[in-house]
């Protein structure tokens, strides 16, 4: 980490430098959070919590590490905490999940124009199927899959991010892929 790196200055408590980091990484963290939760509002909360935690934990950031990678680890842990809280709350309240407005009307979230009604319907069904299959993964499997599939993290990096041994991380990815494949196979192969 160089002296003029915003992370170095953020480390020294310089809010202006931290602002640069927030502006630089917000969109990436939002994408990661959305993939973890499948919910826009939750993803926004996770983005905010990630930067708050990151600011508080800047002193633990090692100069040799990549700030973006480190921040993704913070974000994935925020997302896991969030998912645990949501599950606990649902369990406590005995509430069944009610689809959010934007989830109920999946058609509205698709780009307009172009595809035929059949293709549109297929896309909507596929989206539902993928969301359903992702929701069936355990938190760890989901985190491992998101890090591998969307973030391009290696198995070793996933292990470090999730505090797992390499084999456990690899198995989490395998299980996630297997479950997703089983769920999607009928549609993808049709």
């Amino acid at each position: 980490m160089e002296a003029n790196d915003p992370a170095a200055q953020g480390l020294a408590g310089d809010q202006e430098s931290f602002r640069v980091l927030v502006e630089r990484h917000s969109r990436d963290i939002f994408r990661l959070a959305f993939r973890m939760t499948g919910n826009e509002h939750d993803a926004e909360d996770i983005v905010q919590e990630t930067f708050l935690r990151a600011y508080r934990a800047l002193h633990t950031f090692e100069a040799r590490a990549n700030f973006g990678t480190w921040l993704h680890r913070v974000a994935i842990n925020c997302a896991l905490d969030h998912l645990r809280r949501v599950k606990r709350r649902e369990k406590e309240l005995y509430l069944e999940r009610v689809p959010l407005e934007d989830e109920r009307d999946s058609l509205s979230s698709l780009p307009s124009g172009g595809p035929t009604p059949e293709r549109l319907l297929f896309s909507v069904e596929l989206k539902k199927k993928i969301e359903g299959a992702m929701a069936e993964l355990t938190d760890r499997e989901r985190a491992a899959f998101v890090l591998r599939h969307f973030d391009g993290c290696s198995i070793d990096e996933i292990g470090k991010a999730l505090g797992m041994r390499g084999n456990a991380a690899k198995n989490a990815v395998f299980r996630a892929v297997q479950k997703l494949r089983e769920a999607l196979q009928p549609m993808v192969n049709s």
Partner: peptide, 15 residues
């Protein structure tokens, strides 16, 4: 088949 499934997931729209 595996590639098809994984690419379908990658195509999932993100706000």
């Amino acid at each position: 088949g595996l590639t098809g499934s994984l690419e379908a997931i990658a195509s999932l729209p993100i706000p």
